[in-house]
Amino acid sequence: MDLAEEVAMTAVNMWSEATFVAAVGDAVWAPSIHNSQPWRFRRTSDGIDVLVDRRRGLPVCDPDGRAARVSCGAAAYNLRLALAVAGAPAAWTAGTGDALVHLVPGSRRPATPLERSLHRQILRRHTNRSPFADVRVEPGIMVQLAEAAGDEGGWLHLVDGVPALETVALLTRKADAQLRADPAYVAELRQWTLVADDDVQGIGRHACGAAPHDAELMTRRDFGGPAQEVTRDPTPHPVIAVLGFHGEYRVHDVQSGMVLQRVLLRAADLGLASAMYSQPVEVPAVREQLRLALHRAYAPQLVLRFGYAPTTCYTNRRPVEDVID
């Protein structure tokens, strides 16, 4: 038996069909823009591929597929966690073609306590579109989130101080207004929102949150929800951070997704709610303004909010059999 055959046999022995299917069942709970779920999974002779499903792309708000690559990276991180907790961890490399990530077996070992803790959060983590409570997030918690980003090779920039916060809020509002001025963007958004609550894709009525209002500091995307009774943010100084990676090639988008998911799971593990604002990175000119405002060498991938909020309705996911090649 040559080396290639031995590696392939190791993969088969480590990842049974049941292990693979269970890991994919965890992978699909990654976040994706409009809950479009742009991923597929395929067993190969020597491992597992995570592929981008181009049929589920968003041509208006994600014309080059950047957000889809980020989402596939987040799904790949869940897959890695699930395999590690199963005692069959994986190493990964960049894939080829539509395969963004290729996983190969690593050395068998027990999962670490942190891996187990993060894995428990996969089904608990969700994007929170409800108002956040006016409760202070301790600085030490944000340090831990920044460390989580760094452990995956990325960065998490805490937006510190009122002037910086107002700048990020202004850029978010500016980008959101530009996007909403495009009828094609609005039509695409409506295609994926206000779907039935039992639909396996898109943003259902119970998960869309209330409609945004002009008094909000951080402008949320309008998913068509009902008007709010409270017309101001209860938190005068929300905890806002910007996530990115040290690079701007396509593989770095995938790695940014791994960074994102690790940060989101760590936040959930620490008891935090999280919300995402992708509008500023969907408009190229605004994304560049945000990069300059942060004094970063590379463009940001996502604006995040952390804090405390009640659990809201989760979005659904497609059945595992629908995402496996």
Rank of each mutant, 00 (worst) to 15 (best):
G204R: 10
L194W: 02
V251G: 12
P234L: 02
A164W: 00
L170R: 15
S130R: 08
G73C: 13
T167Q: 13
W39C: 07
L189F: 00
G73F: 12
Y185D: 03
L217A: 04
A241E: 08
A82R: 01
I324H: 08
V259T: 13
L145G: 13
K174I: 03
A8T: 07
T19Q: 13
G209S: 09
I33P: 01
S32P: 04
P110T: 14
A82C: 03
T311C: 01
R66N: 04
V259E: 11
M258Q: 15
W15C: 03
A309N: 05
P38H: 05
V159S: 07
S71R: 06
T231W: 02
I324M: 12
H206Q: 15
R80A: 14
A273D: 07
S32Y: 08
A88Y: 08
V7T: 11
V12R: 15
L194P: 01
N316M: 04
R66I: 02
R54F: 11
G150Y: 03
Q261I: 00
S107A: 13
E216C: 03
G153H: 12
P300L: 08
G65D: 05
P38D: 08
F132T: 07
D151S: 15
S107K: 02
G209D: 09
F306D: 11
H246F: 14
I48N: 03
P238L: 11
